[in-house]
Computed example of a mutant assay.
Amino acid sequence: MKINENTLLEGHKVVLVPYNEEHVPRYHEWMKSPELQQLTASEPLSLDQEYDMQKSWKEDDDKCTFIILDKQRWADPSVDEEQCMLGDVNIFLTDPTDLSLAELEVMIAEPSYRGKGIGKEVTLMMMHYGITKLGVKRFEAKIGLDNQVSIAMFKKLHFQQVSVCNVFKEVTLELTVDESIQKQLQDDVAYMKERDFRLARSNRHEFI
């Protein structure tokens, strides 16, 4: 999606940056994992196919993707950005007739970063971005039945379970954004800063 091609979102523990060509090799390595393929319902792709996918995601009007970076590591300009990657977060506009409905997907690909509250921070940041920049009014999350940690996290964020699909072994949760949800979200991510990605990248040391 073009809207975020030069957007950086800064949180407490992470920075979210556009999914660019230089991120593809690390992403490709992640997606060789059978565990991540199962969690994301993805098929393994060749590296060339992964580059094609990155280009299409950047151009498509119905996909908004950010790569999640470790903020502390990224603040060190001597560390390659690719080595700061820990996952990705996506908003998919799944219904062309209702652009206010969005599927939210968060992947913490690096196991050492799981269980540290990063998924929650990223989810809140992306929900706020979706509401304020994309006009999202209803979120949907589809999570594998085995992924009880993610299911519990979304339920804590007031998502309600609406269906279970035993064929695909996944549960669907939804959240309708009303005024109280929007206000709570603004309070929860009041610390978040939106920056010019290219400018921030050239001044990474300022993020320490």
Rank of each mutant, 00 (worst) to 15 (best):
residue 2 K to H: 15
residue 3 I to P: 11
residue 5 E to N: 15
residue 5 E to Q: 15
residue 7 T to Y: 11
residue 8 L to T: 14
residue 10 E to T: 14
residue 13 K to G: 08
residue 14 V to Y: 00
residue 21 E to H: 09
residue 22 E to H: 11
residue 24 V to K: 07
residue 25 P to M: 03
residue 26 R to M: 07
residue 28 H to E: 06
residue 30 W to D: 11
residue 31 M to D: 02
residue 33 S to T: 04
residue 36 L to D: 03
residue 38 Q to A: 12
residue 41 A to V: 01
residue 44 P to G: 02
residue 45 L to R: 06
residue 46 S to P: 06
residue 46 S to N: 07
residue 56 S to I: 10
residue 56 S to V: 09
residue 58 K to H: 12
residue 59 E to I: 00
residue 60 D to E: 14
residue 62 D to Q: 11
residue 62 D to T: 06
residue 63 K to W: 13
residue 65 T to V: 14
residue 66 F to Y: 03
residue 67 I to V: 08
residue 71 K to M: 08
residue 71 K to W: 01
residue 76 D to Q: 13
residue 77 P to D: 06
residue 78 S to D: 07
residue 81 E to C: 00
residue 84 C to T: 04
residue 88 D to N: 12
residue 90 N to C: 02
residue 94 T to W: 00
residue 96 P to G: 00
residue 97 T to H: 09
residue 98 D to E: 05
residue 99 L to H: 13
residue 101 L to M: 00
residue 103 E to W: 03
residue 103 E to I: 00
residue 104 L to K: 12
residue 105 E to D: 09
residue 107 M to K: 05
residue 107 M to G: 05
residue 109 A to G: 10
residue 109 A to V: 01
residue 114 R to H: 05
residue 119 G to I: 01
residue 119 G to K: 08
residue 121 E to M: 10
residue 121 E to I: 11
residue 122 V to W: 05
residue 123 T to C: 11
residue 128 H to W: 11
residue 128 H to I: 05
residue 129 Y to K: 12
residue 129 Y to H: 11
residue 133 K to S: 15
residue 133 K to E: 15
residue 134 L to I: 08
residue 135 G to Y: 01
residue 136 V to K: 08
residue 137 K to T: 15
residue 143 I to G: 03
residue 147 N to M: 04
residue 147 N to S: 04
residue 149 V to P: 15
residue 151 I to K: 12
residue 159 F to V: 02
residue 160 Q to C: 13
residue 160 Q to A: 12
residue 163 S to R: 15
residue 164 V to L: 15
residue 166 N to W: 13
residue 166 N to F: 13
residue 167 V to L: 13
residue 171 V to S: 13
residue 171 V to I: 10
residue 172 T to K: 10
residue 173 L to T: 03
residue 176 T to S: 14
residue 177 V to D: 03
residue 179 E to G: 13
residue 179 E to W: 06
residue 183 K to M: 09
residue 184 Q to R: 11
residue 191 Y to D: 11
residue 191 Y to W: 05
residue 192 M to G: 03
residue 195 R to P: 12
residue 196 D to Q: 07
residue 198 R to D: 13
residue 199 L to W: 05
residue 200 A to G: 07
residue 200 A to V: 05
residue 205 H to Y: 06
residue 205 H to S: 14
